[in-house]
Amino acid sequence: MERELSGEVIVVGGGVIGLTTALVLARSGRRVRVWAREPAERTTSAVAGALWWPYRIQPEQLVGQWALATLAVYEGLAEQARETGVRMVEGVHLGVRMDELGTWAAQVPGLSETAAGAGLAARLPLIDMPVHLRWLRERVLKAGGLLEVREVTDLNQVPAAVVVNCTGLGARSLVPDPTVRPVRGQLVVVENPGITTWLTSADEHAAESTYFFPQPCGLVLGGTAEEDAWSLEPDPRVAAEIVARCAAVRPEIAGARVLEHRVGLRPARDAVRLERQVLPGGRVLVHNYGHGGAGVTVAWGCAREAAGLAISAAS
């Protein structure tokens, strides 16, 4: 093992979970390094459509708490949308009812059933991830943290008394944790024909869904949720089906010029792993991974809990 970096906390993983956790730690006065095998703009987080909403993530009770804590942060960040990438945007979740959701739903400001009873309407955070990841990275540095592109192959060999594991899908081999699995999501970005609201029609257990999010880069169309699928190559047939499903809701999408195809692998797990593990020799490993399709939605709530575990261990 390399010489231990005395007093530092090393966060392994540079997506939205890792950077948010590092920022909370740095702001608490801890010396923090982020080790990531690739820059944030190349992580799964950068591909996300990034609407705040608990999707494909468990356990429900804890998720609700983490999500509401994160929502409160995003509402504040939306006041500086240009810098943070967070905007509050109106939209509708089709086919969703309040009584189908957990107790957290009653605490989401303005969340209500549509007049026609077709779903739930809300004004929710919609995040431009490239901008938001850049903002997180800059804030970590401003708070005194360090960011390094560095691949970790053994968590036991990371030279710090406290290590926070935010490696997402990488935890499958790194922990190792075979219960972590990919849920493949494919998106299509088209020129926005003038749509200003978001819409989702998604069954958490279905492999296909319909949604569109107006982002600065264009209108992001989705999507898919393919269990245990590892390919990062866009499938032209799937892309055409995504456009067709969205155009069935808003016909003007049919003629929109395609700008980009995206594929991301959601780091799914039966339940988020957020806990402290004591390693031989007294070193501490805090796990914060397995957020499925809702890493953006719970980032701040999970970061605060993970940071609390790390800080208590370092004290």
Rank of each mutant, 00 (worst) to 15 (best):
P178M: 00
W66P: 07
V89C: 02
P59T: 07
A202G: 06
Q107L: 13
A121L: 07
V63I: 14
L279C: 04
R245G: 13
G292M: 00
P236C: 06
L279T: 08
Y55G: 02
E227W: 10
L19Y: 00
R276G: 11
A72C: 08
L232D: 13
V190R: 10
V140S: 10
L126H: 02
P178A: 10
D99L: 03
L5W: 04
R257E: 05
R97M: 12
V9N: 08
S209W: 09
A268I: 05
R262P: 03
I242M: 13
H291S: 00
A118T: 15
L5I: 09
V188A: 13
T197M: 14
A240Y: 01
A81L: 04
P159L: 02
L101S: 01
A202Q: 11
L155T: 07
T200P: 11
R31E: 10
V92A: 02
A46H: 08
W104T: 11
D235E: 15
G255A: 10
A171I: 09
F213C: 01
W135C: 00
E8G: 09
G49L: 08
G255T: 06
T297W: 00
A50W: 02
Q65S: 02
G76L: 01
R257Y: 05
R56K: 04
C166W: 01
A171Y: 04
R257Q: 11
E83F: 09
E4I: 08
E305I: 04
R137C: 03
L147H: 02
F212N: 12
L146I: 11
S173C: 07
G145H: 03
E305D: 10
Q277V: 14
Q61T: 10
E226D: 12
G117F: 01
H132V: 14
S201D: 14
L136F: 03
H291C: 00
D270K: 15
E79F: 07
R262D: 06
E204I: 05
E252Y: 15
W53M: 04
L94D: 11
A310C: 14
G18D: 12
D270C: 09
Q157T: 15
G223N: 10
R27I: 13
R27Y: 03
G102Y: 03
T43M: 01
I10V: 15
A225Y: 05
I253F: 10
G14T: 08
A239K: 06
G255Q: 06
M129C: 05
I242S: 07
A314F: 06
